[in-house]
Design a protein around this nucleic acid. Sequence first.
DNA 1: ATAAATTGTCTGACTGTTCAGTCATTATTA
DNA 2: TAATAATGACTGAACAGTCAGACAATTTAT
Lengths: 205, 205
Amino acid sequence: MKVKEMNKRKIGQRDHLTQVLQAAEKLFAKRGFYPTTIDDIAKEAKLAKGTIYLYFDSKEDLFFSAIERKLDALLSKIEKAVKEPGSAWQRINATIGIHLKFMEENKDFFKIMQSFSEQLREKLEKELKERVVEKQSRYIKILTRLIQRAINEGEVKPLNARKLAVILMGIVHSLTVYWVSQKERGSLCGDASLVQEVFSQGVER
Amino acid sequence: MKVKEMNKRKIGQRDHLTQVLQAAEKLFAKRGFYPTTIDDIAKEAKLAKGTIYLYFDSKEDLFFSAIERKLDALLSKIEKAVKEPGSAWQRINATIGIHLKFMEENKDFFKIMQSFSEQLREKLEKELKERVVEKQSRYIKILTRLIQRAINEGEVKPLNARKLAVILMGIVHSLTVYWVSQKERGSLCGDASLVQEVFSQGVER
DNA sequence: ATAAATTGTCTGACTGTTCAGTCATTATTA
DNA sequence: TAATAATGACTGAACAGTCAGACAATTTAT
């Protein structure tokens, strides 16, 4: 987060910062990057446009900061769960559950995620993009490590662990997309067992 | 002589249309909808901006037409393959192979697909959007029907066929995304057997 | 056969609007 | 009172879409 004068931040200021980030998340999620204007976000946050530029350098900076904020929240949940004792499978299953629960609670957010990397290329600041890409790949790395361990323990076929991680993410993601598109939404978390069943049976030795 | 000249004129027209569609596909795929300007497309197609508006009503119209063109090509390949005789599994496997091959040959194109529905919402003409959504869902329906048959034949566990279709699409799609992001790309088609193995084992009774 | 008129295609300068980012002014806080 | 925070009118660039006219292919008239 590129907050100017970070060290001098006060409570009033932090509130405004959060207001802006929440408004940005909401609107970017609803409409995507380009159709969302800074004026929209300012209005939603009940602040003047100029105030936003006190906290963020540009629209892109705000966009990435909003994504980063949520991604941090998801990652810390995942990382915490992975530290818990248990077998590789138990951890993989926990991860699936946490991911689906998080998406169910933040259904707008994931829409940003899926498009950001391909949508903004070219134009965007390299540094900004890398901040987010790094966190995205950390998630895949965690899953890859878990799957590799399951392979080493002989519970999973000796396939490419990274590709299996990609496949698992793909399953979880596609079900989320499907769930969001439904008019009458059931519980997304309820699909955790389906994912676990299909994936584990699909890769087990 | 008369006929010859007339043909020359008509062929010229069709060429321009194709030129525009190809340029649009290329640039929309590379940069996405908003950062691509009609001037860019005109330049790429070596035509004047006004000419594009002879063939398309708006930027959105052009965007959807470019998508539709490619989607038709993919769908007709899939539909043809599904008509071939064979078991439900053979057809599902054929579909996976065709899909991956198509993406390998049109790696830019699929990027548009994944984002279009979420990117443009709100603003876009309903009718334009529906043209594409209808075709997208036709693909899922084909897969769903195949999977349902495999369930009826007792080869697949009695789970929700549509969700399984969504899962299969998710696997194929995520591997495509992963493949595109690789610097050193191997063969995407080569992953067809991985998908088939994991999916079939994952859902079999 | 040649010129003139007609038709259909293409062009790119122009217009109106939208919007990211600025900054002089005002409000708040210490 | 001085420092800091917030405001919103303003600016300049970008861009979708238009349109008056250029140009080439055909047809008609002489």
